[in-house]
Design a protein around this nucleic acid. Sequence first.
DNA 1: GTCCGACCGTA
DNA 2: TTACGGTCGGACG
Length: 978
Amino acid sequence: MKKGDHLFLVDGSGYIFRAYHGLPPLTRKSDGLPVGAVAGFCNMLWKLMVSARDTEVGVTPSHFAVIFDYSSKTFRNELYDQYKANRSAPPEDLVPQFGLIRDATRAFELPCIEIEGFEADDLIATYCRLATEAGGDTTIISSDKDLMQLVSPSVSMYDPMKDREIREPEVIEKWGVPPAKMIDLQALTGDSIDNVPGVPGIGPKTAAQLLEEYGDLDTLLERAGKIKQQKRREVIIANADKARLSRELVRLRTDVPVPETLDELVLHPLNGPKLISFLKAMEFTALTRRVADKTDTDLASVGKAKVEVETGAEAHGPDLDTGEPRPAPDKDTSFPGDRAGKVEGKTPQDLANKRIEEAANSKIDTSAYVTIRDADTLKEWIERAKDIGYVAFDTETTSLDPMQAELCGFSLCSEPGVAAYVPLIHKSGTGDLLGGGLAPDQIDTRTALDLLKPLLEDPSVLKIAQNLKYDLVVMNRYGIDVRPFDDTMLISYVLDAGKGGHGMDVLAERWLGHRTIQFKDVAGTGKAKTTFDYVPIDRATEYAAEDADVTLRLWRALKPRLVADGVVAVYERLERPLVPVLAQMEQRGISVDRQTLSRISGELAQKAAALEDEIYELAGEKFSIGSPKQLGDILFGRMMLPGGSKTKTGQWSTSVFVLEELAAEGHELPRKIVDWRQLTKLKSTYTDALPEYIHPETKRVHTSFALAATTTGRLSSSEPNLQNIPIRTSEGRRIRTAFVAEPGNKLISADYSQIELRLLAHIADIPELKHAFENGLDIHAATAAEMFGLDVEKVPTDVRRQAKTINFGIIYGISAFGLATRLGISREEAGDYIKRYFDRFPGIRNYIEGTKKRARDRLYVETIFGRRAYYPEIKASNPQTRAFNERAAINAPIQGSAADIIRRAMIRMDDALKQEKLGARMLLQVHDELIFEAPEKEVDETIRIVRAVMEDAAMPAVSLSVPLQVDARAADNWDEAH
DNA sequence: GTCCGACCGTA
DNA sequence: TTACGGTCGGACG
């Protein structure tokens, strides 16, 4: 936000009550749902968004947000437990409208902001401050006197019902004091509605007069004894404390940790279809037509949105007539933006709890599922899904690899227990004999997909899947996109990272108390294993439809927890948008040169064979060199070499560390074993394995990125793992030369320099480290210089090496023991180093102690973007377990914040490249590095864009106090590009 | 056939 | 001292 920008802040909660009382009563939808306040609200938003210039405000907003009260409990209740205590429950026909107004806000695609523990007014105050500091102007859409304290030259208020702007003169006219004195005025007068005590008998007139005379509340209370009127004097002296308390109650907080930065409040163009589908559902015909005209939307092409209404009655538990648990509403919002469904007395936590209980108590009957065998029935199911507005979807295929998988069928479920499987290419017979022809009564694949595509791509129907990325890759290969979507695996990951797995089987067990049918139970195992198209259709239906049913139930159980736990933004901004990005990267794959690998493999084989002969010679016998057990027996048993150590299972350790020690003492054999291990490792894990992954059609290697595999938020890569391709040794690096660009293209590697240390400097707030990064110093040398009082330029190399080890140690949750092992020094010396480090950088100790305490208090730690990582064993009685969890908890915010930053860069990257009309494709992510393939002629421009996106990736959500630096290079292969 | 530990490749 | 995944040998059924 900058000078000249204009922020509109709508006091959503205030508006609801105002509209309810100020508008014609009882506007109802055809089904009886009261929507008067919603109607007024929508009309107001519409007016402000398209024609604010024509109102008394007279300006067009550049930024816009709607602010709500989160719940009635706030920090003010801690100041004064009677605050707002005599508020009565809202009128019955207003209750369902609370959620609808949030839905309306989202339909307008406006930020809908609420924070636990704060009133809307505090958020508004905070945003006013931020906007003013940024040089912008603000208009608060409200006429609430509680907000008048905020009026200033850059902040005005606007009463939408009277089309009246409120500035300083209006405040003085109404209250007799300028905005700056409103706090003191309210402290004296109190507020019977909010139960702010004030001074009894002092009303606005008297208060204004007193403030006029004494200037402010403090002066007035100080000199209260001089008040001439006896009664007034006595009452003010007697109630001075109440006045002071009242002042704290009415003073708005301007330091609320608001989730959205100003820049995220930028007003976007209207999404016509989305808004219209909501307005249609609300039956606001006049406004619907106006919106259609203005946004050039074809009214007929837009369906009605599905809107869930949480009524107050639901909060009261079982149905009073039957005693049965009330059926949960079978509708949910079709806006993935989501909302709490919250009404007074019914918090997001209440809804989440209710849903979890509902899930745990439901029974799953796999025999009730339907097999769809004809197009007409499929059409009916699709129509039903459209009506309901969401559908759980799952594919069944011939392979776990989505790039090879052939679609066997798919399942749908829009209502718990009501699920169907659509078989497409199932075979009759086992397939072993007679080849197994196509089983009868299956819809032709093309016909079925032509019917399915409009559903999967329908913007008003939410598709719900477990691990959607898999299905997305498969469906993309059949020419179908899937959006919008929710992913139960990712929801679980955001909620419960660190508490266990997020696969459907474990989630079903955890939340539904249900054991799902296992794939191996239907497809067999080992030699008898078949692909899914050979599973008999009735058995396939049970298995596949159950998956969709379970997915839907998990979604119902877990989705509300995102709001209750305050992690909606993590899910919506860091998790969900990455799914299509990764799906594309996986589909693109990377080109790996088979000949290069084959040549290296041959050389490795020769060298290894030569070493083997020498090893047998030295050992005096042939043995399995790759067997640590046999090797240990030879080295420490037969040859009686010294200095052996044991692993935790009592075996001799033959780790590199042990072998290197022996080699240093002059033994020949251990050296050769180390070399042999390196060669065979490279051969078996890389040069021999990688070619097996070259796709027969694309001729490229397609890894799979797991989004929900780590506790910290990092991705992982498998089949093949392209995040552990060798780089440290020259022999290993040769493997990277096999990763190449297509002719006419280059590979670009862009990596964050020292991102974790930079984040440590930011998070722990270490001025010396920040300074070093700002000035582009060698960070490890600078650390050494700071620790030992040296000149940065003159740090000896091995002192620098030690400082580097300590720096990494800090990030990993250092211990004297670990550092000693690493540096090969005594525990005491290592302890001294750590102490010296902490003394030089006291912020580090604070960070470590603070993080451990938070982890113990809450069982989780979080990244700078609010991603949580749970450490449920942080309080284990076993000191080793506890210490391990503490170190992991210290590491997680740093590693996780870095992971979040590169995720943000990846999410933005494709758009940024497209905007510059660049043909670059993002192929791989290796934790702090992104690999692209780009047309040769566009390399320089691509690097420019890539660096900009990566370096600014934390913004605007988090403004780092340390610059991020990205190094990027282009070459024909990965080795030279890195 | 399946599981686990040791080892080792990456950030 | 953090976070992963793959390969191997060896034990178990």
